[in-house]
Design a protein around this nucleic acid. Structure first.
Lengths: 343, 343
DNA sequence: GAAATTTTTTCAAACGTTTGCATTCAATAT
DNA sequence: ATATTGAATGCAAACGTTTGAAAAAATTTC
């Protein structure tokens, strides 16, 4: 018994000894269908659990109502916030989100994009992987462009493409964070930087550097160490910082995770925060408000980025032929909490 | 210029004055194709960026290689870990994951499932929404079962269905957590419970209660308060606990977020952890190892759950007609850290 | 050089649905 | 009785691909 085979329009047509067209029209409330016919067919369809095969419709209409979201990871708060933002706007419009995680791998990114194109995804939201960024490859993207599939960059971007992009103003966020530390009176401000090469890392780094310069503060190479965005990766660098002959009196972490790692190490050393050492993170993740002391950070509007990116996509979709890519840069906002409020 | 229309097999056929079948076979390295023809066609296809239309293939083969993942939220560590686990196993097999977020809403869950079925998804991983759970509706699930689309429950489950399910042993995890607190010498153990009705909440609650019973400790209703899984929701209940005439000397939080919220409130009150009050969470989220003090918690293997769920799906798919649903219960594991180690 | 064989290509159907146009049939108008 | 209308339904093509079977072309054999 093949009760598992989904019932089709043809099955219903056979049952009513009519043509598939009639069934189709009846189900879609077409006016030129006899009222009785319509009712009977609709009732029967419901009874047997008929469900339109969207695959065939996709083929016919060349519309799949599915969108690709290609991200390096989904295990950070920010990324999930972005996805939620996309969801909020696009799910109600009937779009389905195909989430592809690249794990920072170029190959996976390439395969994911190729798959999405094959599946005739109608748009792609992309935050390029670190490997892609490092290698500077972009061939796999040419492909997307050539297809005229709307491509929206999120946060991590290529300068070379004529595409829309939604990013957070990392530079000014970082600048504000460091400026705040300076205004409080911290003199030796270290930076736990993100991986080299990524826009996010570099912009925040630039904000840090330029702010120091603006206030004529010395830039000490030994106070700049790399981390990998997660808590663990902050432990060793922080230890090294605190063991310096002339240790920093404040640390600006590339994100909250890193700052929380630093907080932990500082506390283990018996340092008081913010008296002995000031701390600032980036992201304004939910936990940052509840660490002890609470963490000064820079709010990064992930949900909004997702919603804005959706808007950019919709603009491009509905735009007339001569489409002009838009760049949205959302401001980031300093959130001052206890970890930097030395009185 | 319609350079945006994807190149089809027919286009290539026209170019080579041959039939679509020939092109198809050439592209698929069919043996019965002339070597030169094959090479020419493959070269040309590459040149013009031909990409197989998987939609048409889906229709033809009734295989979509796409799977649905329906979850209440993606903004917790655990959920994303599960998705990562699914990804790890299923992406390399060529499956695409359609992630649907229900926001704990029955209606969204119903619509998501219906959409997935319409799109002929080959399997569905479901963690039911709280509303669905509360209402006890299951009609939307009947539909999935009837279609014989493999349905795998994750964590939150219905007892009434003949489906596979992958869950964590919340009961014994909670039991072990409370037993640990007792063994340290804590006498008045409070519980910040999750929302009523959810398996996860109730199982942990049951573990808490039964452990207290086993050790003949009084069960105080005033030490059991509800939270909503997130940090904020723990603040007020914890305050209330600590203002009791006879306050608890330990708190078992339904998850790490809640425990971290409690930690914050306790510290604000000037309580020392673990000397004045012991704390235990649940999840073993990355941050829990780096709070100060670090948080004793129960490891919940999200990634593994995702991978096991994938296995259950594949079993059902490849299984012969008479499929027997499997239930996997992964053990949770107590991770003892500083927040409960009163000496 | 014709027959037999092998290689290569084409035909046609199929997947499920929609839709413009043609057709049927009954009812109304002349 | 016939032409005219209108309502209801059917036909056929289309979307892009694969595949068994048939046909055509090229090669080998005698």
């Amino acid at each position: 018994m093949n009760s598992s085979r989904p019932v089709t329009i043809k099955d219903i047509a056979r049952r009513f000894r009519c043509s598939p067209s009639t069934v189709s029209r009846a189900l879609n409330d077409h006016p030129a269908i006899n009222e009785d016919t319509r009712k009977n067919i609709q009732e029967y369809a419901k009874e047997v659990g008929y469900q339109r095969n969207e695959v065939s419709l996709s083929l016919l209409n060349k519309k799949t109502a599915s969108l690709g979201v290609v991200v390096p990871t989904i295990s950070n708060y920010y990324e999930t916030a972005v996805i939620e933002g996309l969801h909020t706007v696009l799910q109600p419009m009937g779009y389905t989100l195909n989430i592809c995680v690249t794990n920072e791998s170029y190959l996976l990114e390439k395969e994911s994009l190729s798959k999405l194109l094959s599946n005739r995804t109608e748009g792609i939201f992309l935050s390029v992987s670190q490997e892609t960024y490092d290698a500077g490859y972009y061939e796999h993207l040419e492909n997307v462009i050539q297809r005229k599939t709307p491509l929206i960059f999120i946060d991590r971007e290529y300068e070379d493409f004529e595409t829309s992009r939604a990013t957070v103003d990392d530079y000014h966020g970082a600048f504000a964070a460091v400026e705040h530390l300076i205004s409080i009176g911290y003199k030796q401000i270290a930076h736990l930087k993100g991986p080299n090469g990524l826009t996010v890392s570099e912009q925040r780094f630039k904000g840090y550097i330029n702010c120091l310069k603006k206030y004529n503060m010395p830039i000490r190479e030994d106070l700049i160490l790399n981390t990998n965005f997660n808590v663990e990766s902050a432990i060793l660098p922080t230890k090294r910082l605190l063991e310096l002959a002339s240790p920093p009196d404040a640390i600006f972490g590339v994100n909250d995770q890193v700052a929380i790692g630093a907080m932990r190490v500082a506390k283990d050393k018996g340092l008081r925060i913010p008296q002995d050492i000031g701390l600032v993170g980036f992201d304004n993740s939910p936990i940052s408000a509840y660490t002890f002391p609470s963490l000064t950070t820079v709010h990064r509007p992930g949900r909004k980025i997702g919603m804005e990116a959706s808007r950019l996509f919709l603009n491009q979709l509905n735009g007339s032929g001569d489409f002009a890519p838009e760049s949205i840069v959302l401001p980031s906002e300093l959130v001052i909490r206890e970890s930097s409020l030395r009185i």
